[in-house]
Amino acid sequence: MKATFRTPKTHKGWIGLFAILTIVLLGSWPVIPLLNHTTIIFGMPILMVWSILLIFLTTGILMILNKMGVND
């Protein structure tokens, strides 16, 4: 028996995986240090604005993936 991994079988699947990894990166180490200052935007610290943006960005991306019919 081969030791193959299950990977996305379609272009849509790969796009979905790439989109998800991108969102995760936007909320973690490579990006967060860039926002780590005391700037206040819309009356809130920039990290708080970014966290709220991530909420809607995540939902938005998942909605697009649903529309595209990404299943794998």
């Binding site: 998800i20 966290s51 709220i52 991530l54 995540t58 998942l62």
Partner: peptide, 23 residues
């Protein structure tokens, strides 16, 4: 202070886990 925002981010990302694995 703002370190607490990791809670908002991880709860958000748990939605991704549910979306991917749930079905």
């Amino acid at each position: 202070g703002v370190p607490v925002l990791y809670v908002v981010v991880y709860l958000t990302f748990m939605g991704i886990t549910a979306w991917y694995l749930g079905p």
